[in-house]
Design a protein around this nucleic acid. Structure first.
Lengths: 199, 199
DNA sequence: TGACCATTTGAACGCTCACTCAAATATTTG
DNA sequence: CAAATATTTGAGTGAGCGTTCAAATGGTCA
């Protein structure tokens, strides 16, 4: 079931959907990049939507290996991990001249009436990401006030990441990304300050 | 130059691009909704991209009349205005069953290699929005610490709006939107608290 | 070897898309 | 009114899209 051809298709589609979006990527884009013929693609996938489903399943299943392991290499402190993760996206933006944003966020706003499977996979990817950040906040223990909703704050950090990328890509200026991260850092500083001296 | 037909086309395209996105909206979608024939559309616009340009120019020029006047009706306090603006988007989401997000944010992430005119107009729309919120923060005067970067905070508020909408639409759950706004409110509360008792 | 199934090949199909254009009609202007 | 210009009509075009399918090839196992 998981032939090399199938994997080549998913890998190419992952890259193309990221850079060009789903609708702007044609089946023949995928075929020419993979040197696969259309019949082979349709042997493994009923249609284009199913390629997208496979791509989103891969993101969901590989968040540890493809994203977190890379961003968190050599980082132990849970609060540092949060900013290291954001910095991973920053590097992607800068090194690609603002081509590489968040592949999930892109698709989430591009697809207006998505296939239920696609919508659920986008959501699952967001919840995975939020869960990873939430774990960092839990690991931060009493450095953060006890009454702080960790999950809500993790969702907020995803929001900051997505909004910062959106603005930086549109302005083609990393400054707005950095300023967004600085405001987030300020917020966490204020929370941590308040945890030290409860008021 | 500004005939009624041209305006009908822009209005219909504004709605369709909002609900379906740019690429999923066909010229014939616009024609059938407006009862205009293709030759008329191409009499006023060289191509589909130029319809998008006209739409984005309208958003840019009409932010006061179409967005702020509505959201800020009866609201005077500058901090309240910020949350009233966010609440405007909340109402759009809920009342449309998550169809109406942010039209500018949608397009910003849908179009990966936009026409320079389009990219600049998207950016101009963001800067307009940020400018309006920045003015609220300036009007808040010394309720906010003097060393707070008002523009950076306004950009951050745009980020929160965009990220909150993205997650709420994907989850089809307004809860995540509300939690995001609550965290933002917490941040502003902490800032205002710090402005009262400088530390 | 031969039968069976998985995979590959690549031409072809139907459809929708953005867009064109010549002719008809309405409006403006002198 | 007459001429010029602006606008509308709507059939038509070519290109690209996702998808199909019958035939060829490759691998597995009795």
């Amino acid at each position: 079931m998981n032939s090399a051809t199938r994997q080549k298709i998913v890998d190419a589609a992952m890259e193309l959907f990221w850079v060009k979006g789903f609708q702007s990527t044609s089946i023949s884009d995928i075929l020419s990049r993979t040197q696969v013929h259309s019949g082979s693609l349709y042997h493994f996938f009923p249609g284009k939507q199913d390629v997208l489903v496979a791509v989103l399943e891969t993101y969901r299943d590989e968040i540890e290996n493809r994203l977190l392991a890379y961003a968190w290499a050599g980082v132990d402190d849970p609060i540092d991990k949060i900013f290291a993760l954001l910095n991973g996206y920053r590097i992607g933006l800068v090194s690609s001249d603002f081509m590489y944003g968040c592949p999930i966020g892109n698709l989430a706003l591009e697809l207006h009436e998505p296939d239920p499977r696609v919508r659920e996979l986008l959501d699952a990817n967001f919840r995975n990401w939020v869960g990873a950040v939430e774990q960092c906040l839990v690991d931060a223990g009493d450095r953060i006030p006890a009454d702080t909703d960790r999950k809500a704050l993790a969702e907020f950090i995803l929001t900051v990441m997505e909004g910062a990328i959106m603005q930086a890509r549109t302005a083609r200026d990393i400054g707005v990304f950095d300023r967004n991260v600085e405001v987030l850092r300020k917020h966490l500083d204020l929370l941590m300050q308040r945890a030290k001296v409860p008021n």
